[in-house]
Design a protein around this nucleic acid. Structure first.
Length: 302
DNA sequence: CCGAACCTGTGT
DNA sequence: ACACAGGTTCGG
């Protein structure tokens, strides 16, 4: 379910609820969900941060890292008792970890640095870290993987998943099968811009709700209606009207436009305007115009 | 690098 | 009955 923008949204909704609260106990209703690297000790939540797709509750010397994987949710009020896999007990409240597929994990650790935490230590940089401006192109040069695989690999950049990988490739006019090392410096720059733009927009819209995602208040995200590739198999491209195609890359369904997402250097690009939100609005506007014209003139307008 | 595995549910 | 679902990790 959650990629970087959804996890960021959850973290934002958790902060006002949990900061300065003491985590007094963890109740595991599904034993595999909760992992203890050290014996549990109660601690006061000093801060809550996101790193990649991880949620981290931080004490002075204690950490609780939470990964929602596919169907995990952190909620004040559970929506379905059957799927509650763990309960975090605080002094004045509790937080329910709901997870239909049981893939999610909660890890308690103490006496360790943030960046050395299990799971965290293998993550690549956050998309907005300045070092990426320099290192991103070099990283691409070193990879034989397709760009879709590259973007999904958390060691390269932290936080991108299947939805946003497709949205990013679409926005950057890049074919998801493009071999990473064949990407030029200028296209790498455009790609990094698309990564930041797409993720920023999704955070502003509080994430994408397809089937499962809700924040800690139970609210859905608003980014669904702005998706341009993911979930649009067979529908026409908002830029060039060609039906979108799906393939499997990295064992994940990948949606892309076979006409305007080109392998860089191979073919010329269809158009150069970069603001896809603008194009989306233009597209819906034109659709409405066509509908009105049809109503006036019938199927064959002059 | 690829497929399978981990789970449970939904939709065709 | 079968394919598929927003993620990660393992073995070959």
């Amino acid at each position: 379910m959650p990629e970087l923008p959804e996890v960021e949204t959850v973290v934002q909704t958790l902060r006002p609820k949990l900061i300065d609260q003491q985590l007094t106990a963890i109740q595991a209703l599904n034993s595999a969900t909760v992992v203890y690297k050290n014996p549990f000790e109660p601690f006061i939540i000093k801060n809550i941060v996101r790193r990649g797709k991880y949620i981290i509750l931080m004490g002075d010397d204690h950490f609780l890292t939470i990964h929602l994987r596919m169907t995990g949710r952190l909620l004040e009020k559970a929506t379905n008792k059957k799927f509650i896999r763990a309960i975090l007990a605080f002094t004045n409240s509790s937080l329910h970890f709901e997870d239909m597929r049981k893939f999610g994990r909660i890890v308690f650790a103490t006496g360790i640095e943030l960046e050395a935490l299990p799971g965290i230590r293998n993550l690549g940089p956050e998309p907005w870290q300045e070092q990426l401006d320099k290192s991103f192109y070099q990283q691409l040069q070193r990879s034989n993987a397709t760009i879709k695989s590259f973007l999904l690999n958390q060691k390269n950049i932290a936080g991108i998943g299947n939805i946003y990988a497709d949205e990013i490739c679409f926005h950057a006019y890049i074919n998801p099968l493009t071999v990473s090392k064949s990407i030029t410096a200028s296209i790498a720059k455009r790609l990094l811009n698309s990564i930041r733009y797409i993720l920023n927009k999704a955070i502003t819209l509080r994430g994408t709700t397809f089937a499962h995602f809700i924040d800690a208040d139970g609210k859905k995200g608003n980014n669904f209606e702005y998706l341009q590739a993911y979930g649009r198999k067979g529908k026409s491209c908002f830029r060039c009207n060609t039906p979108l195609t799906t393939i499997k890359i990295h064992n994940r369904t990948t949606v892309y436009c076979p006409a305007c997402q080109k392998i860089p250097g191979n073919k010329k690009e269809v158009c150069t305007a970069a603001d896809s939100l603008y194009i989306l609005h233009l597209h819906t506007f034109l659709k409405r115009c066509r509908k009105i014209l049809r109503r006036i003139f019938g199927d064959h307008p002059p």
